[in-house]
């Protein structure tokens, strides 16, 4: 079973783990994700591969503690094993020399853009990275992304770090400054991705978004991850998770994220009780 080799907290709610999984590390490309079942009774949850080290045979995963299963995952320590780990999944990002790219990450989406930024830079692009969060404490990976990007811009809702405002404001400024933007990619909460797409649509800039619908098997067998793209139903787990943002039905996507909210709370409380019971 894949072992957690390293674990660190990036902030109160976000953790990073490095897991030994040589076959996944060898096959992973930027944009791929994995499914993890941290303990046998937990859900199958999809998480982006934030980095892969072929030589060491490891992958890094960054996750926010949002529900019961991420809580279980976060309860595991260095040296513990994951019950199941499947990957790499999904279609990798299309990496080539576009020219100037603006890569945008919001919230935990910041971690997800890291491998893409790295690869686009290596492919010879000028990469302007914009990251945004509610406040300074929730910003993650700024240093790492700064090191990989041609330019890093930061926004926070409360102005505690970087510009006070949204990532889309920064994007608008870049475009207004006369910078010729050839390619945009946005990863983060649905409203953020939607706003970014609204901005770039006006300027006809190709924009990819990485979608985060509910997933179950994540191998194309159940259809829970279906999203409407260009009027057609697509399975995000095998045909995505990246799609042309100008064609995505974001309203449909956010509706399909809701159905288990109430049950998630029950499960979360149940897990908290169990974890309390097992700790000394």
């Amino acid at each position: 079973m894949p072992k957690i080799l390293k674990k660190e907290k990036l902030n109160d709610n976000v953790s990073r783990i490095v897991v030994g999984a040589p076959h996944i590390a060898a096959a992973a490309r930027p944009g791929n994700f994995i499914v993890v079942i941290p303990k046998e009774n937990a859900e199958r949850i999809p998480l982006t591969i934030a980095d892969a080290d072929t030589a060491k045979g490891t992958i890094s995963i960054i996750f926010q503690i949002v529900g019961a299963t991420t809580k279980v995952l976060d309860s595991l320590k260095e040296g513990d094993e994951l019950a199941h780990l499947l990957g790499p999944l999904g279609v990798p990002s299309h990496i080539k020399n576009y020219g100037t790219c603006v890569i945008i990450g919001g919230g935990v989406g910041i971690a997800e853009i890291y491998p893409v930024v790295k690869a686009l830079k290596a492919a010879g692009n000028k990469v302007i990275t914009i990251i945004g969060a509610r406040c300074k404490d929730l910003l993650i990976y700024a240093e790492e992304l700064g090191a990989q990007s041609s330019e890093l811009r930061i926004t926070t809702d409360d102005g505690s770090c970087g510009r006070k405002g949204f990532v889309s404001d920064e994007l608008k400024d870049i475009i207004a400054s006369g910078e010729k933007v050839d390619y945009v990619m946005a990863v983060g909460p649905v409203p953020m991705m939607k706003v970014v797409c609204d901005v770039t649509r006006e300027h006809k800039i190709k924009t990819m978004v990485s979608l985060n619908p509910i997933m179950l098997d994540a191998t194309g067998m159940c259809g829970v991850c279906r999203v409407t793209v260009g009027g057609k139903t697509r399975f995000a787990c095998v045909e995505g998770p990246e799609f042309d943002g100008h064609e995505v039905d974001f309203y449909g996507l956010s509706d399909r994220l809701k159905p288990y909210k109430d049950m998630e709370k029950v499960a979360h409380d149940h897990v908290c009780k169990m974890l309390q019971g097992t700790s000394d």
Binding site: N41, A42, E43, R44, A68, T69, V72, L216, D217, M221, C222, Y260, M263, E264, V266, A267, H270, V271
Partner: peptide, 18 residues
């Protein structure tokens, strides 16, 4: 059926899949 048979959602919340 996957939720129910494979993930044992009928034993929620002991099994975490709803």
């Amino acid at each position: 059926l996957f939720r129910i048979n494979m993930m044992k959602a009928w034993q929620f919340p002991d099994q975490l899949t709803p």
